[in-house]
Protein backbone atom coordinates (compact mmCIF):
# COMPACT_ATOMS: atom_id res chain seq x y z
CA UNK A 1 0.00 0.00 0.00
CA UNK A 2 1.35 3.38 -0.95
CA UNK A 3 0.69 6.42 1.14
CA UNK A 4 0.80 9.81 -0.47
CA UNK A 5 3.00 11.91 1.76
CA UNK A 6 2.59 15.61 1.60
CA UNK A 7 6.13 16.11 0.38
CA UNK A 8 5.50 14.01 -2.68
CA UNK A 9 3.22 16.64 -4.18
CA UNK A 10 5.57 18.45 -6.58
CA UNK A 11 4.44 21.96 -5.69
CA UNK A 12 4.87 21.43 -1.97
CA UNK A 13 8.27 19.91 -2.53
CA UNK A 14 9.26 22.83 -4.70
CA UNK A 15 8.07 25.30 -2.11
CA UNK A 16 9.91 23.56 0.70
CA UNK A 17 13.08 23.80 -1.29
CA UNK A 18 12.58 27.24 -2.78
CA UNK A 19 10.25 28.83 -0.25
CA UNK A 20 12.66 31.45 1.00
CA UNK A 21 13.65 32.28 -2.55
CA UNK A 22 10.05 32.71 -3.59
CA UNK A 23 9.41 35.00 -0.64
CA UNK A 24 12.42 37.10 -1.63
CA UNK A 25 11.25 37.15 -5.20
CA UNK A 26 7.79 38.37 -4.25
CA UNK A 27 9.19 40.94 -1.84
CA UNK A 28 11.65 42.32 -4.36
CA UNK A 29 9.08 42.41 -7.13
CA UNK A 30 6.89 44.52 -4.88
CA UNK A 31 9.69 46.70 -3.61
CA UNK A 32 11.79 47.14 -6.73
CA UNK A 33 10.05 46.03 -9.90
CA UNK A 34 6.65 47.58 -9.29
CA UNK A 35 7.94 51.12 -8.64
CA UNK A 36 9.91 50.93 -11.90
CA UNK A 37 6.85 49.55 -13.64
CA UNK A 38 4.81 52.50 -12.39
CA UNK A 39 7.06 54.84 -14.36
CA UNK A 40 6.67 52.72 -17.45
CA UNK A 41 2.89 52.71 -17.17
CA UNK A 42 2.67 56.45 -16.58
CA UNK A 43 4.79 57.10 -19.65
CA UNK A 44 2.20 55.43 -21.86
CA UNK A 45 -0.89 56.60 -19.99
CA UNK A 46 -3.15 59.43 -20.98
CA UNK A 47 -5.41 59.01 -17.98
CA UNK A 48 -4.89 56.88 -14.91
CA UNK A 49 -7.67 57.26 -12.39
CA UNK A 50 -7.54 55.83 -8.91
CA UNK A 51 -8.27 53.00 -8.07
CA UNK A 52 -7.59 51.44 -11.46
CA UNK A 53 -4.61 49.11 -11.40
CA UNK A 54 -3.74 50.00 -14.98
CA UNK A 55 -4.01 53.32 -16.83
CA UNK A 56 -7.58 54.09 -17.79
CA UNK A 57 -6.55 55.53 -21.13
CA UNK A 58 -3.44 54.61 -23.08
CA UNK A 59 -1.58 56.65 -25.66
CA UNK A 60 1.60 58.27 -26.84
CA UNK A 61 0.20 61.80 -26.82
CA UNK A 62 2.43 63.01 -24.03
CA UNK A 63 5.58 61.85 -25.77
CA UNK A 64 5.11 64.45 -28.49
CA UNK A 65 4.32 67.10 -25.95
CA UNK A 66 7.28 66.26 -23.73
CA UNK A 67 9.85 65.96 -26.44
CA UNK A 68 8.77 69.21 -28.07
CA UNK A 69 9.14 71.29 -24.92
CA UNK A 70 11.78 73.95 -25.40
CA UNK A 71 13.70 73.18 -22.20
CA UNK A 72 13.91 69.51 -23.06
CA UNK A 73 14.99 70.17 -26.61
CA UNK A 74 17.84 72.18 -25.18
CA UNK A 75 18.73 69.77 -22.41
CA UNK A 76 18.79 66.53 -24.38
CA UNK A 77 21.61 67.53 -26.76
CA UNK A 78 23.40 69.00 -23.77
CA UNK A 79 23.16 65.73 -21.89
CA UNK A 80 24.35 63.66 -24.83
CA UNK A 81 27.20 66.00 -25.74
CA UNK A 82 28.28 66.14 -22.12
CA UNK A 83 28.26 62.36 -21.73
CA UNK A 84 30.20 61.76 -24.95
CA UNK A 85 32.76 64.42 -24.16
CA UNK A 86 33.24 63.26 -20.58
CA UNK A 87 33.62 59.64 -21.69
CA UNK A 88 36.25 60.54 -24.28
CA UNK A 89 38.17 62.88 -21.97
CA UNK A 90 38.01 60.44 -19.11
CA UNK A 91 39.49 57.74 -21.34
CA UNK A 92 42.24 60.04 -22.59
CA UNK A 93 43.16 61.10 -19.06
CA UNK A 94 42.82 57.78 -17.31
CA UNK A 95 43.79 54.99 -19.69
CA UNK A 96 47.50 55.87 -19.95
CA UNK A 97 47.54 56.28 -16.18
CA UNK A 98 45.89 52.93 -15.58
CA UNK A 99 48.40 51.30 -17.90
CA UNK A 100 51.18 52.87 -15.85
CA UNK A 101 49.61 51.72 -12.60
CA UNK A 102 49.26 48.19 -13.91
CA UNK A 103 52.53 47.76 -15.71
CA UNK A 104 55.22 50.22 -14.76
CA UNK A 105 57.24 50.24 -11.59
CA UNK A 106 57.65 53.54 -9.81
CA UNK A 107 57.99 54.89 -6.35
CA UNK A 108 54.79 55.70 -4.52
CA UNK A 109 52.63 53.69 -6.89
CA UNK A 110 50.52 52.02 -4.19
CA UNK A 111 49.94 55.29 -2.38
CA UNK A 112 48.89 57.13 -5.51
CA UNK A 113 46.56 54.34 -6.50
CA UNK A 114 45.03 54.35 -3.03
CA UNK A 115 44.47 58.09 -3.19
CA UNK A 116 41.78 57.38 -5.77
CA UNK A 117 39.99 55.12 -3.32
CA UNK A 118 40.23 57.78 -0.63
CA UNK A 119 38.02 60.06 -2.69
CA UNK A 120 35.20 57.75 -1.63
CA UNK A 121 35.57 59.08 1.89
CA UNK A 122 34.10 62.46 0.89
CA UNK A 123 30.37 62.97 0.73
CA UNK A 124 29.74 63.95 -2.89
CA UNK A 125 27.37 66.83 -2.28
CA UNK A 126 29.57 68.56 0.25
CA UNK A 127 32.53 68.11 -2.04
CA UNK A 128 30.76 69.76 -4.95
CA UNK A 129 29.93 72.70 -2.73
CA UNK A 130 33.61 73.08 -1.89
CA UNK A 131 34.48 72.81 -5.58
CA UNK A 132 31.72 75.24 -6.49
CA UNK A 133 33.35 77.81 -4.21
CA UNK A 134 36.56 77.46 -6.20
CA UNK A 135 34.72 77.45 -9.51
CA UNK A 136 33.04 80.73 -8.59
CA UNK A 137 36.43 82.32 -8.59
CA UNK A 138 37.38 80.86 -11.97
CA UNK A 139 33.99 81.77 -13.40
CA UNK A 140 33.34 78.12 -14.18
CA UNK A 141 29.98 78.01 -12.49
CA UNK A 142 27.22 77.93 -15.05
CA UNK A 143 29.55 76.91 -17.87
CA UNK A 144 29.67 73.74 -19.90
CA UNK A 145 33.37 73.37 -19.11
CA UNK A 146 32.63 73.51 -15.40
CA UNK A 147 30.09 70.70 -15.70
CA UNK A 148 32.53 68.64 -17.78
CA UNK A 149 35.20 68.96 -15.10
CA UNK A 150 32.86 68.00 -12.29
CA UNK A 151 31.61 64.98 -14.24
CA UNK A 152 35.18 63.93 -14.97
CA UNK A 153 35.84 63.85 -11.24
CA UNK A 154 32.80 61.72 -10.85
CA UNK A 155 34.01 59.05 -13.27
CA UNK A 156 37.75 59.19 -12.63
CA UNK A 157 37.79 56.40 -10.10
CA UNK A 158 35.90 54.01 -12.36
CA UNK A 159 38.05 54.76 -15.37
CA UNK A 160 41.24 54.21 -13.39
CA UNK A 161 40.17 51.18 -11.45
CA UNK A 162 38.60 48.91 -14.05
CA UNK A 163 41.32 49.31 -16.71
CA UNK A 164 44.12 49.00 -14.14
CA UNK A 165 42.73 45.67 -12.99
CA UNK A 166 42.29 44.62 -16.61
CA UNK A 167 45.86 45.46 -17.59
CA UNK A 168 47.12 43.67 -14.51
CA UNK A 169 45.05 40.68 -15.50
CA UNK A 170 46.82 40.14 -18.82
CA UNK A 171 49.36 37.40 -18.36
CA UNK A 172 52.82 38.65 -19.20
CA UNK A 173 53.65 35.33 -20.83
CA UNK A 174 50.95 35.94 -23.44
CA UNK A 175 52.72 39.12 -24.44
CA UNK A 176 56.11 37.45 -24.39
CA UNK A 177 54.72 34.77 -26.67
CA UNK A 178 53.83 37.58 -29.06
CA UNK A 179 57.33 39.02 -28.97
CA UNK A 180 58.65 35.53 -29.41
CA UNK A 181 56.92 35.00 -32.75
CA UNK A 182 58.30 38.30 -34.01
CA UNK A 183 55.81 41.01 -33.06
CA UNK A 184 57.21 44.37 -32.03
CA UNK A 185 56.20 45.69 -28.60
CA UNK A 186 53.70 48.02 -30.28
CA UNK A 187 52.23 45.19 -32.34
CA UNK A 188 51.96 43.11 -29.18
CA UNK A 189 50.13 45.92 -27.42
CA UNK A 190 47.69 46.52 -30.27
CA UNK A 191 47.06 42.96 -31.36
CA UNK A 192 47.36 41.02 -28.11
CA UNK A 193 47.05 43.23 -25.04
CA UNK A 194 44.29 45.56 -26.22
CA UNK A 195 41.91 42.88 -27.49
CA UNK A 196 42.28 41.07 -24.19
CA UNK A 197 41.45 44.11 -22.05
CA UNK A 198 38.76 45.27 -24.46
CA UNK A 199 35.77 43.91 -22.50
CA UNK A 200 36.90 45.74 -19.39
CA UNK A 201 37.62 48.95 -21.28
CA UNK A 202 34.25 48.72 -22.94
CA UNK A 203 32.58 48.24 -19.55
CA UNK A 204 34.43 51.25 -18.13
CA UNK A 205 33.46 53.46 -21.08
CA UNK A 206 29.84 52.35 -20.94
CA UNK A 207 29.60 52.90 -17.19
CA UNK A 208 31.20 56.32 -17.56
CA UNK A 209 28.77 57.33 -20.27
CA UNK A 210 25.74 56.15 -18.35
CA UNK A 211 26.86 57.64 -15.04
CA UNK A 212 27.44 61.01 -16.65
CA UNK A 213 24.13 60.85 -18.43
CA UNK A 214 22.32 60.39 -15.09
CA UNK A 215 24.46 62.53 -12.86
CA UNK A 216 22.43 65.07 -10.97
CA UNK A 217 24.25 66.81 -8.12
CA UNK A 218 27.22 68.21 -10.00
CA UNK A 219 25.14 69.30 -12.96
CA UNK A 220 22.68 70.95 -10.61
CA UNK A 221 25.24 72.79 -8.50
CA UNK A 222 27.68 73.79 -11.20
CA UNK A 223 25.62 73.91 -14.38
CA UNK A 224 22.21 75.27 -13.40
CA UNK A 225 20.61 77.43 -14.47
CA UNK A 226 22.75 78.12 -17.57
CA UNK A 227 23.73 74.61 -18.53
CA UNK A 228 20.83 72.26 -18.07
CA UNK A 229 20.89 68.51 -18.42
CA UNK A 230 17.93 66.17 -18.48
CA UNK A 231 18.17 65.15 -14.80
CA UNK A 232 18.34 68.79 -13.72
CA UNK A 233 15.26 69.89 -15.65
CA UNK A 234 13.40 66.94 -14.19
CA UNK A 235 13.38 68.41 -10.70
CA UNK A 236 10.74 71.05 -11.38
CA UNK A 237 8.85 68.64 -13.62
CA UNK A 238 8.57 66.09 -10.84
CA UNK A 239 7.99 68.49 -8.02
CA UNK A 240 5.63 71.11 -9.32
CA UNK A 241 4.03 69.65 -12.40
CA UNK A 242 0.50 68.39 -12.15
CA UNK A 243 1.18 66.22 -15.20
CA UNK A 244 3.03 63.07 -14.11
CA UNK A 245 3.69 61.96 -17.68
CA UNK A 246 6.50 64.47 -18.22
CA UNK A 247 8.54 62.97 -15.43
CA UNK A 248 7.73 59.44 -16.54
CA UNK A 249 8.74 60.02 -20.14
CA UNK A 250 11.95 61.82 -19.23
CA UNK A 251 12.76 59.02 -16.79
CA UNK A 252 12.55 56.56 -19.66
CA UNK A 253 14.72 58.78 -21.87
CA UNK A 254 17.26 58.85 -19.07
CA UNK A 255 16.93 55.12 -18.58
CA UNK A 256 17.51 54.27 -22.25
CA UNK A 257 21.33 53.94 -22.08
CA UNK A 258 20.90 51.76 -19.01
CA UNK A 259 19.06 49.23 -21.11
CA UNK A 260 22.32 48.65 -22.97
CA UNK A 261 24.03 48.30 -19.63
CA UNK A 262 21.39 45.83 -18.47
CA UNK A 263 22.06 43.67 -21.51
CA UNK A 264 25.61 43.31 -20.25
CA UNK A 265 24.57 43.11 -16.61
CA UNK A 266 25.72 39.56 -16.22
CA UNK A 267 29.17 40.24 -17.61
CA UNK A 268 29.48 43.45 -15.61
CA UNK A 269 28.66 41.47 -12.51
CA UNK A 270 31.06 38.63 -13.24
CA UNK A 271 33.84 41.04 -14.13
CA UNK A 272 33.36 42.76 -10.77
CA UNK A 273 32.91 46.06 -12.61
CA UNK A 274 29.85 47.06 -10.61
CA UNK A 275 31.81 47.40 -7.40
CA UNK A 276 35.12 48.46 -8.95
CA UNK A 277 36.93 51.18 -7.12
CA UNK A 278 35.45 50.76 -3.70
CA UNK A 279 38.25 48.69 -2.26
CA UNK A 280 36.17 45.56 -1.91
Amino acid sequence: MTTVTITSIPFIRFFRREGIGILWLIGLIFGIVLPILTVLLWAFAIKWRYPSVLPTEWGLDFWMETLSRADIRRALPNSIALSVLVTVLSAVICLPASFAFARLQFRGKQGLLLSFLFTNAFPRFGLYIAIAVIFFRFKLVGTFAGVVVIQLLNTLLLMIWIPTAAFQGVDRALEEAGLDVGASPLQVFIQITLPMVFPALFAALLLTFVNTFYETYGALLIGAPNVLTIPVIMFPLINNQPIPQFGAILSLVLFAPSVVLLLFANRLLRGGYLTAGFGV
Binding site: A177, S184, P185
Partner: peptide, 18 residues
Protein backbone atom coordinates in the same frame (compact mmCIF):
# COMPACT_ATOMS: atom_id res chain seq x y z
CA UNK B 1 63.20 38.80 -28.50
CA UNK B 2 61.11 39.53 -31.59
CA UNK B 3 64.24 39.54 -33.76
CA UNK B 4 65.75 36.32 -32.42
CA UNK B 5 65.57 33.07 -34.36
CA UNK B 6 64.27 31.26 -31.28
CA UNK B 7 60.75 30.11 -30.44
CA UNK B 8 59.46 29.35 -27.01
CA UNK B 9 56.82 27.09 -25.54
CA UNK B 10 55.84 28.40 -22.13
CA UNK B 11 54.87 26.66 -18.92
CA UNK B 12 51.42 28.20 -18.83
CA UNK B 13 49.27 27.73 -21.89
CA UNK B 14 49.99 30.97 -23.65
CA UNK B 15 47.59 30.75 -26.55
CA UNK B 16 45.96 34.12 -27.16
CA UNK B 17 42.41 33.65 -25.97
CA UNK B 18 40.88 36.10 -28.44
Amino acid sequence: PNKRPTAMVFQKYTLWPH
